[in-house]
Design a protein around this nucleic acid. Structure first.
Ligand code: FES
Ligand code: FES
Lengths: 144, 144
DNA sequence: CTTTATTCGGATGTTTTTATCCGATTTACT
DNA sequence: AGTAAATCGGATAAAAACATCCGAATAAAG
């Protein structure tokens, strides 16, 4: 569904958001440990998120990653997915035709667009803030 | 969403089904030409479908690929996807946790399972016969 | 000013996916 | 028997995804 990079990106952003709510800035090592992701690879993904303005990265001692509380509420999963995987999930044809086009649809177009739109709406309507709610209460997890 | 192999597999199976309805057996070259897929790679995928009993492959002159009319009606997209991509679409966690588990869910579990189940039902309820209906009338396409 | 903690950026390496090549095998037809 | 048409199966190649390494840059603290 999503690339590994995107999965790590969502998990990392969610962890950063959760800690930022408590006023804590987090380091790469803490993040990759807490979400169980390969450290160096996670660094690359965090760079992408930083360049896209989704997280704030600060170099140096007492640096690390963080998010403003307004960004935590405003940022949605769709923005993260788009920053890492691009728009092929939202726009691509389910059978791999060069473009998804209702004028010249593939045999699953109607059914596929329905599911794709469900997914898109879900991603657009889920904020990082919402993602963190279950974590604090131990109802949801970022690793296993 | 699906691998390239799976996309080609669905397109190929749909084309074979459409031609089999007209009593025509088709060759690898015709298939890859009509669905616009790399020929040799398509051959590998057709082997997988053949080994899984989804299509019938016959060697030699006047050989080629075909399907029985009962198979065309019985075979669903979910069988093709499962034969090529396995069950990770149906069972995997949306955020890449080692397994999707409602006891220890990730933050998107509920929303993701809803979409995943929609997709699964769609694939299980769509037969190859249904896939061919629009093709004959020029309403749908297998390449662009 | 030096040390320490941190991200950044480019190069590199590994694994998986995608794709090709070619000889072997099978079948039908002459 | 010989030839042509077709898939099969294994080896190989190319591209993309996944992942690591390491020196450079930056910032705080002693
Ligand atoms: S054309 Fe295939 S999903 Fe729209
Ligand atoms: S645990 Fe992540 S989707 Fe079920």
């Amino acid at each position: 569904m999503f690339s590994k990079a995107c999965e790590y990106g969502i998990r990392a952003a969610t962890y950063i958001a959760m800690q930022s709510i408590d006023g804590r800035r987090v380091s790469l090592n803490e993040i990759s440990g807490e979400i169980d992701s390969p450290t160096a690879f996670t660094a690359k993904i965090l760079q992408q998120l930083s360049r896209n303005g989704i997280i704030d990265a600060t170099k140096g001692a007492n640096g690390g990653y963080g998010m403003s509380s307004t960004d935590i509420k405003k940022t949605t999963l769709s923005q993260i997915v788009f920053a890492i995987d691009g728009d092929n999930i939202y726009a691509g044809c389910g059978l791999g035709l060069k473009e998804c086009n209702a004028e010249k649809p593939c045999p699953v177009h109607d059914k596929f667009v329905f599911i794709r739109d469900n997914l898109r709406q879900m991603l657009e309507n889920t904020s990082l803030h919402e993602m963190t709610l279950g974590l604090a209460t131990g109802l949801t997890y970022l690793k296993r």
